[in-house]
Nucleic acid binder design. Sequence first.
DNA 1: CTGGGGTCTT
DNA 2: AAGACCC
Length: 596
Amino acid sequence: MEKSRVPSARKDGRVIIHFDYDCFYASVFEAQTPALKSLPFAVQQKQIIVTCNYEARRRGLYKLQLIRDARRMCPDVVIELGEDISRFRDASKELYSFLKAFSWSGKVERLGFDEVWLDVSDIVDYNRQLLNRHDLAQSFFQTSRDDPMEGFSFNASKLAGHPYPQNYKRADVTGVVDDLTMRMFLGSHLAQHMRHQLEEQKGYTSTVGIGTTKLLSKLVGNLNKPKGQTTVMPPLDSSIDGPGNAQAFLDRHEIGKIPGIGFKLAQKLRDFILQRPAAFDTGLVYGGTKENVTIADIRGHAEVNPEMLERLLSGPGSPYGIGYKVWCLLHGVDDTEVSQAKAVPSQISIEDSYIRLDTMPELLQELDALAKSLVSRMRVDLLVEEESASKEDDLRSEPVDRALHQVTSKKWLAHPKTLRLTTRPRLPLQPDGTRIRSFKRISHSAPLPNFIFGLSESVDSLAERLVREALIGMFRKLHPEKSGWNLSLVNLAVTNMAETAGESKTAKGRDIGNMFKRQDDVLKDFQVREVSPSPAEGSELETQVVTGGGWDEDVELGDDDLECCGDCGTRMPPFAMVAHRRFHLPAVPALQNHCT
DNA sequence: CTGGGGTCTT
DNA sequence: AAGACCC
């Protein structure tokens, strides 16, 4: 019997939760000063509102808005300065640790200060096998591997939070669920539990997405903001019956909204689809576009395939294999792992921007201030209490002794080897008196002097030495002219961390996924997936719910509504054509997708 | 008069 | 050292 075969690339064996703390910078201030919550409140850096709470958004304020516009729009807005980001970093670390404590695998990845992914596949799989399928409504979710009493009660026949698609037919109506559906249910309950704990114990609300990949979990969360959660439900795969929910969901997105496709790639793709240069938004929003080109527009284009994308998108600065990577993203394929928590950052940097910085005395003052911050931050982020060298240390009973001891028992987690100075020169005036704004940076690196690690010297004096003995010389390399420069930004960084022996690089070694080139890693897995559902394997849980597709079920299609495939002439409804077209396209690699 | 951070790749 | 990407 010949089964219908469709190339597939989905690997949906994982359950991934994506957290996004609601208006994070504003929430940090609100946690400290709850009265702000009921007011329109915004956080300012230089002349910009970097974020604002929802009370402010209700009055029209938005992220990255100019202060002047914000005040005009909402004169009573309360504004706090957030240029010193220490408090945000501290809060971010605290919340990250809190969430990480739920993980069994250590696969917990932070993006920026306010986003965290967790791969909770192991927790979900463990709990799936604990379920009593005759009484799903009275289930208990075990959050600890060791303690069967730790956890929460929940109804495993229902999803927690919102589904995608919205009209998803719930299992409590149909009564049966397949494995993937059950895993998404479990993921949604775990996510809800964590979200509530985060709010109750830390005072932060968050927006959450649950999916089988980093890409889907992150994007789907956006559907219910703020303090909501959304799960991408099966069937994820496109089949002869129609596009899967993963593709249906992605298809509506403007190309620039896809993580991994930044401004440059998005512009190239828009230009190609429109066959002319796409107009981009000159307003303040960075990736803004006036031309909406969607994933569907690109994916459905006859000439688009991985090789063509490689030709279109590669260029200076673009990584090898970009065409294939984008091709995967267009199809909702994202095999990237949630990376292991890192013990140390790969870089620490401090920067400030200036309307004008063009004299040596001012520069020295700024370098000094930046260097002080940098040394302080090195001590915060790279210094840990040393493990006690002897038992006496632990048994020491006098608090004073303890305090004294601690001062002298700090240890560097890592020694950065490189110091980097970056500037952003302001371009000279044009002949016509206007100025081209440039965001180009130039940098110079040098070995980081060892004295910086001394703990007996004060931060201030170390900073002064750093300026005199290293930074001034580095600045001369960048700007050999005695004068005439004008900087709009200065950044000081330490990089190239040499981690101290004995400390593992991550909680559990390197992220294996990142050690392979995506392409090599994925291509060797190429297989064709059989789409016909395999017979239910005994249990009711294996029975598939197939009624909740992402298209309108009751639409009758007349002959006029059929489309004709340009390659083989087969006629079929438009929704089926989506899947059918993939027959004729270079295949995306696939894995067997049956989750057992 | 577009922040202050980060990551990774070439 | 620079350029892409992320927040």
